[in-house]
Design a protein around this nucleic acid. Structure first.
Length: 214
DNA sequence: ACATTAAGTGATT
DNA sequence: AATCACTTAATGT
């Protein structure tokens, strides 16, 4: 019987992994459906599984003691969380928080399988290495943005990234949420958005910002 | 109609 | 660019 889970796994991961590994994934992985805005992992939570995204998208944020956030990067289907990779080597606690951007499907792999599969499957090894690579690239991009871009440029990049990720020019967020993701304040974001609107780059609605282009 | 939440504004640091 | 204090606008009940 082909379950939805099997379909999802072979459709999303069949190109990346060898057949035997796909079968292992189907046998061992636990499928988990996530609601939009659901928190998947909290900071300090013990990591028991390696999540691989089959459908949807997740945002990964850092958080300080005061609960203030900073968006690190997004992960999409086929991706796994590099932070989890790093943490699970020592089976440590999560350094980040992960929140679903939309309803998503993920497959959870018990951490024990990491080592077994590393030894057994070359496609698994290169997938893990590749994931590290991509994630570090993304982190560097984020660091560059924080260090070198002006907030208005960062804001526009944020909106465009968001739009690209969800495949729509209509970004559904409040100014407050943007401020939190960029670790700025609501008033500042509102003013910068106003400027972008005046420049004709966006249209502002309540709870929604419409990009003119990506 | 009223309360709540989102967004806009002017002044100050 | 951040914060405060306040206003206005939109939305839910």
């Amino acid at each position: 019987m082909t379950s939805i889970k099997n379909e999802l796994i072979s459709n999303e991961l069949g190109y990346i992994f060898e057949e035997e590994l796909v079968n292992d994934l189907i046998k061992i992985g636990k499928l988990k459906s996530i609601r939009a805005d659901e928190t998947i992992i909290q900071i300090g939570e013990k990591i028991q599984f390696l999540p691989i995204i089959l459908d949807g998208s997740i945002k990964v944020v850092r958080e300080n003691e005061r609960g203030e956030e900073l968006l690190l990067y997004y992960i999409e289907s086929g991706d796994t969380c590099a932070m989890t990779l790093q943490c699970c080597m020592k089976s440590a606690l999560s350094e980040v928080k992960a929140i679903a951007m939309e309803p998503s499907e993920i497959v959870m792999i018990p951490l024990e399988m990491m080592e077994v599969w590393m030894a057994k499957y070359s496609s698994w090894r290169s997938y893990i290495l590749q994931s590290y690579h991509v994630r570090i690239q993304e982190l560097i991009e984020t660091i560059d943005a924080i260090a070198f871009m002006r907030l208005d440029e960062r804001l526009l990049k944020y909106l465009k990234d968001h739009a690209k990720l969800l495949g729509t020019l209509e970004v559904i967020v409040t100014h407050q949420q943007i401020a939190e993701d960029l670790h700025s304040s609501r008033v500042v974001i509102s003013r910068l958005l106003k400027q972008l609107e005046t420049k004709g780059q966006i249209i502002i609605n309540r709870n929604k910002i419409i990009l003119k282009s990506i």
